[in-house]
Design a protein around this nucleic acid. Structure first.
Length: 296
DNA sequence: AAAACAGCCTGCGTGC
DNA sequence: TGCACGCAGGCTGTTT
């Protein structure tokens, strides 16, 4: 589900709830998700103070005063649910994982809540992920970048170092379609299906164009388009589709700003009435939306 | 070596 | 109403 703007939004939400606090209790409700959890995950987290959060591509890093960081990925369907805890004890006989909320109401746990973290500030954060494509691991903070999931990632698209020249260098002589190249996290880190479609439309570049031909003037147009669509989405709190809610329960609204994604058959805003219609094709097994008249 | 593909999972909307 | 099918925001390991 979540691409870079959604992960950034979730991370900021987690920071407001967890940063500076001490983790008081951890519930590990299954052995793992995409991969097994570290066997000592609960022990490593309990009692640790949360120093802060960082994001790398679509990964969140929760840095602890133990010298370790929790490396968290939301996969396709992952979300974080933050609830304020009440002081009332949970009644005897309540369902496993039930908790008392701020109003003292007894709440059942959400389905597919695989990991729960409570802190000394009275928050309960549940990691809910029905499809279990998400993951949680622990890594030494000083060696975060060397983790196998992070070490091969390309540049952060919102950093200055991500320039047209940098993109061209990463693409090299690749003959894969530019759509597929931009989904490759080694080329640029954090884009997913939606924002690739949106950025290519903004830049007027066909998703079918061979990646190596996106250089020079085309790359110079594409890179600002990528930065703009990501920055606008973050400012809107990300996009809320099927599974995604912010940690504070507020919904991001950027999905209302999609120009091509999910708009098969509609006229694009650049062509207007003359538009032959936004098309949906499948590339590398993923839907691509584009306007064949505006994107060459 | 690069690119395509299958596979991991559940849930939801659609059409019969 | 029930059921089969297709589709979904990601990423990895294997095959071609």
């Amino acid at each position: 589900m979540p691409e870079l703007p959604e992960v950034e939004t979730v991370m900021r939400g987690l920071a407001t709830v967890l940063e500076g606090s001490r983790i008081s209790r951890v519930a590990v409700n299954r052995a793992g998700m995409r991969w097994p959890f570290p066997v000592d995950l609960a022990v490593r987290l309990e009692g640790a103070r949360v120093l802060g959060f960082a994001r790398r591509a679509k990964y969140m890093l929760m840095r602890l005063d133990t010298g370790q960081s929790a490396l968290i990925h939301l996969g396709m369907s992952g979300r974080m649910v933050a609830r304020r805890l009440g002081v009332a004890p949970v009644p005897r006989g309540a369902a496993q994982g039930a908790y008392s909320d701020a109003r003292g109401h007894n709440q059942p746990p959400e389905a597919h809540e695989h990991l729960v973290i409570e802190n000394d500030a009275g928050w309960r954060v549940g990691f809910v992920d029905p499809r279990r494509f998400g993951s949680v691991d622990l890594v030494a903070t000083a060696a975060e970048g060397a983790h196998r999931l992070l070490r091969d990632l390309g540049p952060e698209p919102l950093e200055e170092a991500f320039s047209a020249a940098a993109l061209s260098a990463r693409i090299g002589a690749s003959r894969t379609p530019i759509k597929s190249a931009l989904l490759d996290q080694r080329v640029v880190a954090g884009l997913g299906n939606i924002y690739v479609c949106e950025a290519l439309f903004r830049a007027g570049i066909s998703p079918r164009r061979l990646a190596y031909t996106v250089a020079g003037a085309r790359a110079a147009k594409l890179v600002p388009a990528i930065k703009a669509v990501l920055a606008e989405s973050i400012a809107a709190g990300g996009s809320s589709l099927r599974d995604y809610v912010r940690a504070d329960g507020e919904l991001g609204v950027f999905q209302e700003s999609f120009l091509v994604y999910g708009r098969e058959g509609e006229a694009c805003i650049k062509c207007g009435a003359a538009c032959p219609g936004i098309r949906r094709i499948v590339q590398a097994g993923r839907s691509t939306f584009f306007c064949a008249r505006q994107q060459r």
